[in-house]
Simulated scan of single mutants.
Amino acid sequence: MGQFTAVDVSFPSDGGRRGGRLYRPEGSHPVPCVVMCSGFGSTMDRLYTWAEVFAAAGLAALVFDYGSFGRSDGDPRQVVDVDGQLADVRAAVACARADRGVDAHRVVLWGNSLGGAHAITVAADDPRIAAVVAQIPFNGFPRRAEGRSTAQSLRLMAAILRDALRGRLGLTPHYIPLVGEPGEIAITNAAAAKEHIRTLSGEDSLWRNQVAPRATLRMMRYHPADAAARLAVPLLVCLATDDAETPVELSSQLAERAPHGTLKLYPGTHFSFYTDPRTRQTVASDQIAFISEALGLAS
Rank of each mutant, 00 (worst) to 15 (best):
L206H: 12
L206C: 07
L206R: 15
W207C: 12
R208Y: 05
R208T: 12
R208D: 10
N209E: 02
Q210K: 15
Q210E: 14
V211A: 11
P213Y: 05
P213L: 13
P213R: 03
R214E: 11
R214Y: 05
R214F: 02
A215P: 10
A215E: 13
T216W: 08
L217Q: 08
M219W: 15
Y222D: 05
Y222R: 09
H223Q: 12
H223S: 11
H223M: 12
H223N: 09
P224C: 09
A225P: 04
D226W: 07
A227N: 04
A228E: 01
A229N: 05
A229V: 02
R230I: 03
L231Y: 02
L231Q: 08
V233K: 12
P234M: 02
P234N: 02
L236A: 07
L236T: 01
V237H: 00
C238Y: 00
L239A: 10
T241G: 10
D242S: 13
D242W: 01
D242Q: 14
D243Y: 09
D243K: 07
P247L: 03
P247V: 03
V248N: 11
V248C: 12
E249D: 15
L250N: 09
S251N: 07
S251T: 05
Q253N: 12
L254T: 06
L254G: 05
A255T: 00
A255Q: 01
A255R: 00
E256I: 00
A258L: 01
P259Y: 00
P259N: 08
